[in-house]
Amino acid sequence: MKAIELRDKEIHDLNTELHSLLRAYFVLRMQLATQQLTNNAKIKLIKKDIARVKTVITQKMKNHDN
């Protein structure tokens, strides 16, 4: 997911997206721990998406306060 797409969303939608990404990250970590994960690159992509969503949420909250 690109940051441009995220900036168009509302904070509530971003929180929902963050929640789903955190769930996906948890599932991937469990698959890694049980050696069921076949594509390790997915973990890195999910972590980057989580960081993007958190960044956009922070930016929106900062702009909302002004």
Rank of each mutant, 00 (worst) to 15 (best):
M1C: 04
M1Y: 13
A3N: 05
I4V: 12
I4W: 04
E5I: 15
L6C: 10
L6V: 11
E10K: 15
I11A: 10
D13P: 00
D13C: 02
D13I: 04
L14D: 01
L14A: 10
N15W: 08
T16H: 08
E17A: 07
L18A: 03
L18I: 06
H19Y: 00
H19T: 10
L21N: 13
L21E: 10
L21K: 11
L22Q: 06
R23K: 07
A24H: 11
A24M: 08
A24Y: 12
Y25L: 10
L28E: 02
L28W: 04
M30S: 07
L32S: 06
L32E: 08
L32P: 00
T34Y: 00
T34C: 02
Q35R: 08
Q35K: 07
Q36H: 11
Q36G: 03
L37S: 07
T38D: 10
N39Y: 12
A41Y: 13
K42M: 15
K42F: 14
K42R: 15
I43M: 13
K44I: 15
L45T: 13
L45A: 15
I46M: 10
K47L: 11
K47D: 08
K47E: 15
K48E: 11
D49K: 08
D49N: 12
A51C: 02
A51T: 01
A51K: 09
R52H: 11
V53G: 01
V53Q: 03
V53S: 03
V56D: 02
I57Y: 07
Q59V: 06
K60W: 07
M61E: 06
K62M: 07
N63E: 05
N66K: 09
